[in-house]
Computed example of a mutant assay.
Amino acid sequence: MNRSSLLIGAQMEDSTAAAAPYDVRYRYLAGGIRDAGVCSSSCSSACGAWWGCWQDMSQAPGQYVLSHLSGTAAAKWNGASRPQIAAITYYELLHGSKTSEGAAEVAAINDAPFLGRYLDDWRFLLQTIGSREALLHVEPDFWGFVRQVNSNPASVPAAVTAANPSDCAGQANTASGFAKCMIAMVRKYAPNAKVGLHASPWNYTVSGDGVATGAFMTALGAGDGDFLVTDPSDRDAGYYESIGQNRWWTDSSAAAYLAWSKAVTDAVGKPSVMWQIPLGNASQNNTASHWKDNRVDWLFSHLADVSQARVVALLFGAGDSNQTTPESDGGNLSAKTVSYQAAGGTSICR
């Protein structure tokens, strides 16, 4: 995206996006895909939870995404134009397949009628973006479940060519072919967008897992994309502590995460984006939407280490509705972002 400094962003409300010189603003697309022949030109109650009609029903399908793209492009800071990058997390396999996480979700990509609907939905998103710039984050968790099924994604069946012969005829009928098809569709329909697959850090403390994850992501086709995405935790540490789990970062575990991230990116040959980073901080009181965590403070105190790990963006957001958000964190993320940008940022390590 022609940026030379580590990017800072979040999933946030309009007021928060205007409260600091953020670089990126992301949104989730989840909840379900469009049924064939339904809601192709207008929205109605028949569209259900489909993201294409998350806006006023009087507007044409896709306006929710278009508003995100136009809003970020028109962003200001202190009264002056300062465009933000629009990022989109596409999380539809689980919801669209109406199955459970894990092996059942992976099996769904070998169902040609379902996969055809899914890739049609992906195409609609890409056509909506068109020539605009955007960051596209593809299916958090899913590729990790593929790896659990088989560490060789070329051995996991997927009905790719039957589902989308117009865009994917040259791809293998495997999980790798599926991933490569999704990336190739971005190049075709949204040529100025950047795309990245999600690399799950579930075993980042296990010796050698960074190299193994990198090998899996390479076999999957992640190198055809522009970046990788990782997520250090889906909930605040204070929340996990309330249910008897220790998920706090220490200097040692944080360093292990960055070492794991670098091993993955070195193997694939692409940088990474750290996404959905919990927003808790020491001033919170460990109640709903106000959980404690230390990742925000740790990361802003170790930005040179973050960059050395080939991380190019830090994107903060709540992984659940009752976690700390940029609106409930007492202004901590915005204040740190203001200070970070005023100091000139941290150079990306290329």
Rank of each mutant, 00 (worst) to 15 (best):
residue 334 S to W: 13
residue 29 L to I: 09
residue 213 T to V: 05
residue 35 D to W: 11
residue 62 G to P: 02
residue 35 D to H: 12
residue 5 S to Y: 07
residue 55 Q to K: 05
residue 341 Q to M: 12
residue 245 Q to T: 02
residue 178 F to R: 09
residue 168 C to S: 03
residue 46 A to K: 15
residue 257 Y to R: 00
residue 203 N to D: 12
residue 300 F to L: 00
residue 43 C to W: 13
residue 168 C to K: 02
residue 218 T to W: 02
residue 234 D to V: 12
residue 271 P to E: 08
residue 332 N to P: 01
residue 266 D to M: 14
residue 241 E to D: 15
residue 181 C to V: 01
residue 335 A to Q: 14
residue 188 K to P: 09
residue 49 A to F: 11
residue 22 Y to Q: 09
residue 5 S to L: 02
residue 68 H to C: 10
residue 215 A to Q: 12
residue 339 S to N: 14
residue 15 S to T: 14
residue 341 Q to R: 15
residue 145 F to E: 15
residue 80 A to W: 01
residue 124 F to A: 14
residue 54 W to Q: 13
residue 268 V to I: 04
residue 258 L to V: 08
residue 254 A to K: 11
residue 111 D to Q: 07
residue 272 S to V: 11
residue 125 L to T: 05
residue 324 T to V: 03
residue 93 L to A: 02
residue 197 L to G: 04
residue 294 N to H: 03
residue 118 Y to W: 11
residue 104 A to W: 00
residue 291 W to L: 01
residue 70 S to F: 04
residue 249 W to G: 06
residue 59 Q to K: 13
residue 200 S to L: 15
residue 246 N to P: 07
residue 83 P to E: 09
residue 61 P to D: 11
residue 43 C to M: 15
residue 222 A to V: 09
residue 18 A to L: 13
residue 309 A to G: 01
residue 195 V to R: 00
residue 335 A to R: 10
residue 57 M to F: 13
residue 196 G to E: 13
residue 239 Y to C: 06
residue 321 S to E: 07
residue 96 G to M: 00
residue 203 N to C: 02
residue 338 V to N: 14
residue 262 K to I: 08
residue 296 V to R: 03
residue 192 N to E: 10
residue 245 Q to V: 13
residue 167 D to W: 00
residue 27 R to V: 06
residue 117 R to T: 14
residue 344 G to A: 10
residue 331 G to M: 02
residue 210 G to S: 04
residue 19 A to W: 02
residue 179 A to T: 14
residue 181 C to Q: 01
